[in-house]
Computed example of a mutant assay.
Amino acid sequence: GPLGSQELRLRVQGKEKHQMLEISLSPDSPLKVLMSHYEEAMGLSGHKLSFFFDGTKLSGKELPADLGLESGDLIEVWG
């Protein structure tokens, strides 16, 4: 439907204040797309980062719909 093409704007926050990035992701893209984007943007490719939403560790295989993600939601990064 028409909602399928609406990109989500997700906030991805590392442990430092400046490690905050807003990433647009289409609802049918797995979260590993967002994870790789964040790692590259922060120059952290190859680092072992863990991504969490609402305290749940993400594998990267999830789709936004699986987690009920909405624009403005916060994904936290530890590593």
Score class of each variant (00 low, 15 high):
S59D: 11
L8P: 00
G1Q: 07
G72P: 01
G55D: 12
E22H: 07
L34M: 13
L31S: 05
S26N: 11
L67E: 10
Q13F: 00
S24L: 15
K61Y: 09
T56Y: 10
L10D: 02
H18I: 13
S71D: 04
Q19V: 11
S5D: 06
A65H: 04
F53L: 05
K15V: 11
A41W: 01
V12C: 06
S59M: 09
G14Y: 03
G60S: 13
K48N: 06
D28V: 09
W78Q: 07
S29W: 07
K61P: 00
F53M: 09
Q19W: 03
Q6F: 01
R9K: 08
E62V: 02
P30A: 14
Y38M: 07
L31Y: 00
W78P: 00
S36R: 11
Q6W: 02
K48A: 12
S71Y: 04
L67A: 14
L10T: 03
H37L: 07
R11P: 00
D66F: 03
S59K: 06
D54K: 14
G68W: 10
E62C: 03
G60Q: 13
L3Q: 08
G1Y: 03
K15L: 13
E22K: 05
D66W: 03
A41Q: 09
S29D: 15
L63A: 06
T56V: 12
Q6L: 06
M20L: 15
V33Q: 13
P2H: 04
T56W: 05
G14N: 06
L21C: 13
V12W: 04
K32H: 15
D54Q: 14
E40I: 02
T56R: 14
L74P: 00
W78K: 06
S29C: 11
D54Y: 03
Q13A: 15
F52K: 05
L21I: 15
S29E: 15
L10F: 03
G79T: 05
H18D: 13
A65D: 10
F53P: 01
P2I: 07
L8V: 02
S50L: 08
S36E: 14
L58R: 01
L34C: 10
G1E: 09
S26G: 09
E70H: 06
M20Q: 14
R9W: 04
E40K: 01
S45E: 08
P30D: 10
S50Q: 13
L3Y: 02
R11F: 03
P2Y: 02
V33S: 13
G4K: 01
G60K: 12
T56P: 02
L63K: 07
L25Y: 09
Y38V: 06
L67K: 07
M20F: 08
G79Y: 05
S50H: 06
Q13V: 11
D28C: 11
L58G: 07
L74I: 15
S5L: 05
G60A: 12
G55Y: 04
L63R: 07
L10K: 01
P64C: 08
L49H: 02
P27C: 13
G55S: 10
P27Y: 14
G1W: 03
E62G: 02
V12K: 02
L25Q: 14
H47Q: 14
L74D: 08
R9G: 03
G72Q: 07
I23P: 00
E22M: 14
H37I: 05
V77C: 04
F51T: 04
